[in-house]
C-alpha cells in the first residue's frame, strides 16, 4: 500500500499492464515527449520507448479510429484524449465503430480499446473545456463507461479496463489528478460494473461518482453534525450500472439524492432515478432529489462558475428536502 496521487495510480495501472502484455500501447496527444498534458503518462516513454508510447497529431477522430482498427486485430490500445471535450470529434468512431463492430459482424470481431482522459470542469476553462459527457457515452449500447473517484479505484478499474475485451470509456477528472489516496501495490484489479459504498448511513442515500463523490462525502460529514446519517454510494461504472448497490441502499434509507456535475436534461442521474422509481417504488418516502450542474454552458467568471456547479450546501439542501426537514 502506498500513498499515491490519482495520476500516479493511473500511471501505475498503465505501466503494469504494459509490462504484462506487449500488445498494450499508449497513444494520444502529448503522452510521450511532453510526458502527458496532465502528467499521467510521466516516464512511460523512457520506460517503453517510442513504439509503445506514441505522440499523435491533434486528430482525435483519426487516432481513435486507428486505435479501433488496431484493436480489431488483437492489439489493446489505450487512447488518451487530452480531455473528453476533444473526444467529441471522435464520437463517430466511438459510437459507430467501437460500439457496433462486434454486434454488426455477428460477434466475429471484438474491440478491446480503452479511451481515457479527464472529464468535467476544472477551474475557469469556460464552456468548451468544462463538460461532463458521460450520459452521451452511456447512452450507446456496446460501450462500457467508467468514472472512478479515488486513486485506488482508478488503478483497479483501469487495469480491468485494459484487460476487458470491450471498448471502455474511462472518464477521469483534472481536478482529482493531484488528489492522494492509499493504493494497493501490484496486482490490484477491480471488476467493472460493481459499485461501492463510500460511507455508510441509514437516513438518506447520496449517489455520486467521480469528482462529485467528494462533494457528497463533505456534505455527509456536515450532515452528521445535524444528526443525519447519509450513505454515499459510488456506482464507479456508469454503464453497465450496478443496480444492486444502489437499490440495497435506497431500500434501507428510503430517501435518495443524486449528485452529478453533468447537465440535468437526460442525465445519468435521471436514468438511475428511473431505475429506483421502478424497482424500489414502495421503499421511497420522498421523491428522489437531484443536484446537477445548471442547464447552461459553463460560464468563465469565477462567481458564475461556482453557481453552475453542484456544491456542498446544495447537496445538504437537497438531502434536507428529501428528509422533509
Amino acid at each position: 500500500m502506498a500513498m499515491l496521487a490519482f495520476r500516479e495510480a493511473l500511471n501505475q495501472a498503465m505501466t503494469e499492464e504494459m509490462e504484462r502484455d506487449p500488445n498494450v500501447f499508449l497513444m494520444g496527444e502529448e503522452v510521450a515527449q511532453y510526458q502527458g498534458a496532465y502528467k499521467v503518462s510521466q516516464g512511460m516513454l523512457q520506460k517503453f520507448g517510442e513504439k509503445r508510447v506514441i505522440d499523435t497529431p491533434i486528430t482525435e477522430a483519426g487516432f481513435a479510429g486507428l486505435g479501433i482498427g488496431a484493436a480489431m486485430i488483437g492489439l489493446r490500445p489505450i487512447v488518451e484524449m487530452m480531455t473528453w471535450n476533444f473526444a467529441i470529434l471522435a464520437f463517430d468512431q466511438l459510437f459507430n465503430n467501437a460500439a457496433k463492430i462486434r454486434y454488426m459482424s455477428g460477434g466475429q470481431f471484438k474491440v478491446p480499446i480503452v479511451v481515457r482522459g479527464p472529464s468535467g470542469a476544472a477551474h475557469a476553462l469556460a464552456a468548451q473545456h468544462s463538460q461532463s459527457l458521460e450520459a452521451m457515452l452511456a447512452h450507446v449500447p456496446g460501450l462500457i463507461v467508467v468514472a472512478p473517484s479515488t486513486p485506488a479505484d482508478g488503478k483497479g478499474l483501469l487495469k480491468s479496463a485494459v484487460r476487458d475485451d470491450n471498448p471502455v470509456m474511462f472518464m477521469e477528472s483534472e481536478m482529482m489528478y493531484g488528489q492522494k489516496g492509499e493504493v494497493p501495490d501490484g496486482e490490484y484489479v477491480l471488476p467493472l460494473g460493481v459499485g461501492d459504498v463510500k460511507r455508510g448511513g441509514k437516513d438518506v442515500t447520496i449517489i455520486a461518482w467521480s469528482k462529485m463523490i467528494h462533494v457528497a462525502l463533505a456534505a455527509a460529514e456536515q450532515l452528521k453534525n445535524e444528526g443525519i446519517e447519509a450513505e454515499v454510494v459510488d456506482p464507479r461504472t456508469i454503464h453497465p450500472l450496478d443496480e444492486t448497490v444502489i437499490l440495497d441502499s435506497v431500500k434501507k434509507t428510503n430517501r435518495c439524492v443524486i449528485v452529478e456535475e453533468a447537465w440535468p436534461f437526460a442525465s445519468v442521474g435521471k436514468e438511475i432515478a428511473s431505475r429506483i422509481y421502478s424497482q424500489a417504488f414502495d421503499y421511497l418516502d420522498a421523491p428522489i432529489g437531484h443536484v446537477n450542474g445548471a442547464d447552461v454552458p459553463m460560464p468563465y467568471a469565477h462567481n458564475l462558475e461556482k453557481l453552475m456547479l453542484p456544491s456542498v450546501p446544495r447537496v445538504i439542501d437537497a438531502v434536507k428536502e428529501v428528509l422533509y426537514r
Partner: peptide, 11 residues
C-alpha cells in the same frame, strides 16, 4: 380528492 402519500408510507 386523491390521498397524497409516499409509496413507503402507503406500504
Amino acid at each position: 380528492s386523491r390521498v397524497k402519500i409516499s409509496p413507503l408510507a402507503k406500504k
